[in-house]
Amino acid sequence: MDVLYFAWVRERIGLPREKIETDAATVSDLVDELRTREERYAAAFADLSALRVALDQELADFDAPLQGVREVAFFPPMTGG
């Protein structure tokens, strides 16, 4: 699946998007997997309360299932307007 990062999440991880092969069942499982990869991921995902997630461009919860999802995006709370 495609995993996208925005704003400081993108800066902390150092890339805007990447393809990830995963068997993670939920967003939380995917986050746990990413955290173990490298320090920069652990730093970006240190505090989930500071993050939001969208699955296929729809806001979702961290316990949402990933089955059938093509695009996961992680970002801080939005600041539009």
Binding site: F6, A7, W8, A54, L59, F75, P76, P77, M78, T79, G80, G81
Partner: peptide, 21 residues
């Protein structure tokens, strides 16, 4: 403000900072 996927970064004389929600 809170549900459209935009993020603001302020560039000042002192540096750059993401605007917190």
């Amino acid at each position: 403000k809170s549900r459209a996927p935009f993020w603001k970064k302020e560039i000042t004389d002192q540096g750059a900072d993401w605007v917190a929600a």
